[in-house]
């Protein structure tokens, strides 16, 4: 993708690097000789659309090109015609959604009657889920209803979600669920 910095600069007449020491925790020797650099200067810039409400605000994501390659900063995209650089409190906290120590980073499994989660591999989890889906589907599948009409469905499996998915993900998701014969497919628009 191509995102230029063309209008990222908003204030007129600013000099490139001034004499500034902001915040705290910096070594101040020599105090005014330290020309502060923007933390985002060498970061990769990508555009995104906020994942909260449906206004569809644009944001710029600054990702470190070094080290762990994580997000340094996310702020409003001034070239976006809807929000023109602004974001609300939730949008302004987008970085903390991604760089968050509370996030799930491994598949987890809870066995029947167990008191705890167990970390598992993706392959193990998805193979086991596929097995459960097949068992349940095949046991509850109805080719015909009481009237004898062909219905090819299961009412033994339900799926809810998800307005949190991208359009393309939504499409393959519903295709997979419908191919399995699910009729109980519902999502956020219903509640």
């Amino acid at each position: 993708m191509k995102v230029t910095r063309r209008e990222f600069i908003q204030v007129t007449g600013a000099t490139a690097a001034g004499l500034a020491v902001s915040g705290l925790g910096f070594d101040l020797k020599p105090v005014k000789a330290h020309a502060q650099m923007l933390k985002t200067k060498y970061a990769k810039e990508t555009t995104t659309i906020c994942c909260y409400c449906a206004v569809g605000c644009g944001a710029i994501v600054h990702t470190s090109k070094r080290g762990d390659g994580r997000v340094i900063n996310i702020e409003g995209d001034p070239d976006h015609v809807i929000n023109r650089g602004s974001l609300c409190s939730k949008g302004a906290s987008l970085k903390q959604l991604t760089e968050n120590e509370n996030r799930l980073t491994e598949p987890m499994y809870r066995a029947p009657y167990s008191k705890e989660w167990k970390q598992v591999s993706w392959d193990w989890a998805l193979s086991k889920i596929a097995k459960r889906v097949k068992e349940t589907r095949d046991a509850t599948f109805k080719v015909k209803n009481k009237k004898g009409q062909v219905v090819n469905r299961t009412e033994g499996i339900v799926s809810v979600g998800s307005s949190a998915l991208d359009n393309e993900e939504c499409w393959i998701y519903q295709a997979l669920m419908r191919s399995l014969g699910l009729v109980y497919v519902e999502h956020q628009a219903r509640i």
Binding site: I49, G56, V71, I74, I82, L104, Y109, K128, A164, E168
Partner: peptide
Amino acid sequence: EVFMLPACTSVEKEGSITNSGRWMQWRY
């Protein structure tokens, strides 16, 4: 039996979403 699968956030993947004004917008 519960399987908890960790999804990534929207800024960690590519695709489109559609806002309330029916605008489909691509993100990277």
